[in-house]
Design a protein around this nucleic acid. Sequence first.
DNA 1: AACTGATTAAAGCAAGCGCTTGACACAATC
DNA 2: GATTGTGTCAAGCGCTTGCTTTAATCAGTT
Lengths: 218, 218
Amino acid sequence: MKQVQDVASDTRERLMDVAERLFAERGYSNVPTRMIAEEASANTAAVHYHFGSKERLLEAVFHRRLEPMNRERIAKIKEAMAASGNGRPDVEVVLRAFIEPTLRKPRDDGERAFRLLSGRASTDPNPEVKRILFQAYDEVARAFADAIAKACPELSTEELFWRVACVYGAMLYIRADNGRLQPVFGKEFSLSDPEGALRYAIAFMRAGMQAPPAGPVD
Amino acid sequence: MKQVQDVASDTRERLMDVAERLFAERGYSNVPTRMIAEEASANTAAVHYHFGSKERLLEAVFHRRLEPMNRERIAKIKEAMAASGNGRPDVEVVLRAFIEPTLRKPRDDGERAFRLLSGRASTDPNPEVKRILFQAYDEVARAFADAIAKACPELSTEELFWRVACVYGAMLYIRADNGRLQPVFGKEFSLSDPEGALRYAIAFMRAGMQAPPAGPVD
DNA sequence: AACTGATTAAAGCAAGCGCTTGACACAATC
DNA sequence: GATTGTGTCAAGCGCTTGCTTTAATCAGTT
């Protein structure tokens, strides 16, 4: 019984590992289920046996990583709110709660691959991909929006909306690591360096969030 | 002669218009050439007659919009450098030179579609797409990097690299307009609003670029 | 030893893919 | 008025796609 389940979840796990890496490298639409099965030393039927469809495999890949990560983000956001005594939380603390879990050092190749995948998928127009991301991020997105609004009470909702978009964009661009800035700045710099991401990107974002309001468009 | 060319470039132009819109809406890999041809009231053979391949059609779509846009960006960047007498150009002026042409109000539906397309393609892992974007943006990327480095001389190359990445990310996320922030902030706000993009996003970026250096990671 | 339920494997289906073909239309050229 | 060059068209080629089918395998139970 035990052994059967172990072997079973072994193939399942291997399929997710391979799919995660290939989706990150080549994009969901450009990875055939056959390729996933082959690299996982499994049969294409195994993909549909374990997940039902290619789309649900992607869903499982996201769920596996996002479940713990988003739980942590929400916990830290709530912590930041509580620390302020329900007053005005610190901008940098809120930013870190939202961003640190997504940009810190990956623990293994799987996490590294998923970091790429989630960044790249963020602008994927494929409706299957969009649906999965919407669902996966909705709760943490709302929690962050609430917290950052409380941390920046002098901003109108409109101005807040735009600044949050900039924060999202920066975070996701770093995660996606499309390699376009390497040839410009030199190969010694990499968006996949977690030290720089947390130190420099958060400094940028904090300054952006704390800039004096530009005020409404006349 | 005149009339023949007119009719010819008519189909060619129509194919590019439709491809631009469909690539933006569904992603390059998810749009069959058959669909492009059908919506352009043409034959699939016309795609290959005029462009040689689907990949070269994408290239043509990018080239058509990017040629004038990047020429303008580079001219404005040079202008900003010249205005400073080859000293220290203004950060906001440099930012605007780089970003305004990409975020201002689209003149028609074609420009609007391309705005989406270019934002979404920026993190597309498909090697065909990556190659085209690398090529198309290399020159303007270098010009901007030079100018912004001169405008922020107190930043180390490493710190500059990360801040430029944040600027890229914010700009491209706004262009991509993936619709994920709408349900959080309410439908009255849209990343496709060019007034807000220029006013609020540039204020954010300027503050980010002008933040005091965080200094090296110890 | 027969049975059961959970997996895996080989083969293939219908549909869709990028691209090519050969015939044809038509204005411009000679 | 035959020829040429340009563009369009219906048809289809070879291949790949996500997914299904059918049969086999294997551990655990009876």
